[in-house]
Design a protein around this nucleic acid. Structure first.
Lengths: 66, 66
DNA sequence: GAGTGATGTAAAGTAGGCTTTACGTAAAGT
DNA sequence: ACTTTACGTAAAGCCTACTTTACATCACTC
């Protein structure tokens, strides 16, 4: 699961720590998300989309055809 | 997490079993999803959206302000 | 009224999302 | 040189999404 979290976070001038606070998750979760290490829950994806003011589809791109 | 899975599934004339096959998950997962018992992974949400030809935001509605 | 198909519940197990803690490194400031 | 800030890794643990199996109910058909 690719995503634009790092790019959008930096656009908005947030550190990973700030983003993790706003999303109420750990910094580890942000790091792992940005690295594409795992696929977030739908709830977290909604939170991110809301904070970034974009659609989930704009931010996340599922790895082909699974 | 509310969703319109049951409604759309019935619109399309699928049984729970058929839907579970198309999505490659168990029938239990479909039942639990339709009952709102848990929040799917983002990958499963993408699969459902693709199959239903709608956006994730059209199908799922997160429970208020979490 | 026995058989079949669709929906549902219950319970035990597996896998992975997410947390917590601890440590490493590089850049910048003092 | 030391401190601070931001980013990163590693490992152990918790919780829950999801699986599997088994069984119950209802509607329909034969």
């Amino acid at each position: 699961m690719k995503n634009l979290i790092k790019e959008i976070r930096m656009e908005l001038g947030f550190t990973q720590g700030e983003l993790s606070e706003k999303l109420e998750v750990s910094r580890q979760t942000i790091i792992s998300l940005e690295k594409g290490r795992y696929n977030p829950s739908l709830i977290l994806a909604f939170k991110i989309a809301k904070l970034f003011n974009r659609s989930i589809e704009d931010i996340f791109e599922p790895d082909e055809v699974e």
